[in-house]
């Protein structure tokens, strides 16, 4: 029936840059988030040029030096420049975040969409498996895996990815269940589409927006968790520069040399906050009901 009203609900076209820009501008927190993430990404991309020292160069004459003109964030217990280590550590932390989210999101999206489309027994079995994974505290799983496979950053990443998969599966499945009922999907089956084709052409595309939001929000969390794992010694190992590991070592000096833990800690806080703000912004952007505002 002819629906009346001035508010047109249509998904935001990704191609519509002008509109996207207009919407982003209206939300100062999203702008702040984008600026924070851009700052982090610039440091990650240009670490070798932005660092003032070799992050692993030991200088025993300048051990635990406070922040100064020569060492902006001070130095650590073997005289390495903390500023340079924070800059290089960002590469690792952000890289870990992206890796975890991409693996978990990718696997979760495919499994979840399939589960939703196929339904029936496949769906039941997959969802019960996910329930099992979900029912164990994620840090415990991660620690168990890290302990079993040996403490290394790669194993930590793998563990973190596995723990996160169920969240994406649930999200993608929920989306698939809704999309499956849309007339265009019904049409696709009439036009002769297989389940796989429906997944590829319709479900995957339309299930994407909430997954992207989840992934963006998750990036901050993954970086925090990577840092936490390194902090308890199950992630990055010495002498690799990594924020969590640096905070962890700096803990021994926290009373006299505050800068050791403070700067990498601040970097974690900054990055995680940035991704959270960005994630909230993206969620609002991709909400089709917002069109026209």
């Amino acid at each position: 029936m002819s629906a009346a009203g001035p508010i047109v609900a249509a998904p935001v076209a990704i191609s519509d840059w002008g509109f996207l820009f207009y919407r982003i501008r209206k939300s100062p927190l999203t702008v702040l988030g984008i600026l924070m993430i851009l700052t982090v990404l610039v440091f990650v991309a240009f670490a070798p040029w932005l660092a003032t020292h070799d992050p692993n160069a030991i200088s025993l004459r300048a051990r635990l030096a406070p922040p100064s003109g020569a060492h902006w964030f001070g130095t650590d217990e073997v005289g390495r420049d903390l500023y340079s280590r924070v800059v290089f550590g960002g590469r690792l932390s952000v890289g870990v975040g992206f890796f975890v989210v991409v693996i978990a999101g990718g696997v979760g999206a495919v499994v979840g969409c399939l589960s939703g489309i196929l339904g029936g027994r496949v769906d039941t079995v997959l969802m019960r498996i996910m329930d099992v994974v979900l029912s164990v505290p994620s840090l415990v799983v991660t620690m168990a895996l890290a302990a079993a496979l040996g403490p290394s950053l790669f194993n930590a990443m793998l563990a973190m990815a596995i723990v996160r998969i169920p969240f994406y599966v649930r999200l993608a499945r929920g989306q698939a269940l809704v999309i499956r009922e849309m007339p265009y999907v019904k049409g696709a089956y009439i036009f002769g589409a297989s389940n796989w084709q429906v997944l590829r052409w319709h479900v995957a595309r339309n299930a994407m927006p909430p997954l992207i939001v989840q992934a963006t929000l998750d990036l901050g969390g993954a970086i925090l968790m990577a840092s936490a794992l390194s902090f308890i010694g199950l992630g990055a190992q010495q002498p690799t520069a990594e924020w969590g590991a640096m905070v962890s070592t700096g803990r021994n000096f926290i009373l006299d040399q505050w800068w050791y833990s403070a700067f990498p800690g601040f970097a974690i806080l900054f990055t995680a906050t940035g991704f959270n703000l960005l994630g909230d912004g993206v969620r609002d952007l991709l909400d089709p009901r917002q069109k026209g505002r």
């Binding site: 249509a10 998904p11 849309m182 007339p183 265009y184 019904k186 049409g187 009439i190 052409w201 319709h202 595309r205 339309n206």
Partner: peptide
Amino acid sequence: IVFQDPQSSLDPRL
């Protein structure tokens, strides 16, 4: 087939 609602019978992302 041609469906009733031209809004939901066309995939918005194609």
